[in-house]
């Protein structure tokens, strides 16, 4: 099968070899260690571009004062309000309220701690509105 042009985009597995099934010359199936098929890289890249677009939009909203910095952490971790609510054990409407800056600024230390723990940041980052990089990057 002809593959689309190989471009400079890096391998999504960071060079990790995976195995996949392929037919050998005798017509028998074999598990062959290989790099990821190029189209997979393309669509994976597309998904991340979409996430990055959402993050940029969230940063703009925060700068405009329309949402609290919690919104950035939610979007950057690919969550929505219902997922965030499940992780922090709160009803969804509360999480929605916490996205509003005026309500977020009055949150108790206990609630802030919950969010900070989930995103592995300090509660200070939240109160100061510091936007830390993605969870993936600081590990």
């Amino acid at each position: 099968m002809e593959l689309p042009d190989h471009s400079s985009e890096e391998d999504i597995t960071d060079g990790l070899k995976i195995v996949s099934y392929a037919v050998n010359s005798k017509g028998e199936y074999e598990l062959i260690p290989d790099f990821v098929w190029q189209p997979v890289n393309v669509v994976n890249h597309q998904a991340w571009q979409e996430i990055e677009k959402n993050i940029a939009a969230s940063k703009d909203k925060i700068a405009a004062g329309r949402v609290s910095c919690l919104h950035y952490y939610m979007i950057a971790n690919q969550m929505d309000t219902s997922l965030l609510a499940q992780y922090t054990g709160q009803p969804r409407w509360k999480v929605c309220l916490h996205l509003l800056p005026c309500i977020f600024n009055r949150l108790s230390a206990k609630t802030l701690q919950k969010y900070a723990e989930l995103y592995k940041i300090s509660p200070d980052d939240l109160t100061q509105g510091r936007l830390q990089p993605l969870i993936h990057n600081h590990q």
Partner: peptide
């Protein structure tokens, strides 16, 4: 479209949406 392809080909499928496996 990209999402369909990801479900079909991304790691864990063995390629071709499990058909080869």
């Amino acid at each position: 479209l990209g999402h369909v392809v990801r479900m079909q080909e991304e790691i864990g499928t063995g390629g071709g949406g499990f058909r080869f496996m």
